[in-house]
Nucleic acid binder design. Sequence first.
DNA 1: ACATAATATTGCTAATTAGTAATATTGTCA
DNA 2: TGACAATATTACTAATTAGCAATATTATGT
Lengths: 112, 112
Amino acid sequence: MANSLLNQDQLRAVARLFDLLAEPTRLDILQNLKKKPLSVGEIVNATNAKQANISKQLGILHDAGLLRRERRGNLVFYSIDDPMIFDLCALVCGKLRKDAESRLAAVRSLGR
Amino acid sequence: MANSLLNQDQLRAVARLFDLLAEPTRLDILQNLKKKPLSVGEIVNATNAKQANISKQLGILHDAGLLRRERRGNLVFYSIDDPMIFDLCALVCGKLRKDAESRLAAVRSLGR
DNA sequence: ACATAATATTGCTAATTAGTAATATTGTCA
DNA sequence: TGACAATATTACTAATTAGCAATATTATGT
């Protein structure tokens, strides 16, 4: 157990989740929601995407279960449903940083 | 530090990496390479994708720096370059499992 | 009821890409 | 060198989707 390969359906499910994180605009939304819930307008201001697009991406993230939605009067607030996303992003950022550093080291070694 | 938001380029880089993991066929390749390096033919046999497609996806993963490539005579072996990928997949699998369980619990509570 | 503000939806276009069949390349062995 | 096996590439199609402008919906205050 914990060692058997995922079947086709499971692979599709995993891929689907990664796909949600495979768009810069959605990642931008998520990182802005990391500290605290924000209204749609606040997210629009924090990013440089148009309102229609933010609404669309928020809908996608919400439908997928990554975001909570709460209406408060005229505003709609979104918040992170599962902070695990940030663990994912931290891993990826760590890898990118490491890769960048080793590329830098390679360039430096050319100077010798 | 470690708290500032990623800029557009960084978001694109993170998204790019998630995108590599957002295809079932590529995930299937990766999970098959988890135990040990495999030749292209072995990967083709282990999955149910055509040779041309496997070669293409292997090329994508290799170009992105996720896979190592080594020619041994007539065969070409691929291997995982950074096992961090599996940490990512483990997190995602964990979330999917948790979500499935809570959905199950919700259904069960209806029976009361 | 009406005007206004916030958010969602619709209809669309352009760009990306997985998968495929056919073909090319590379290496081995006789 | 020629035949064969393994892998890569090419040219293509079909499907998906981010982003946008315009418009619709929903809530508030008067």
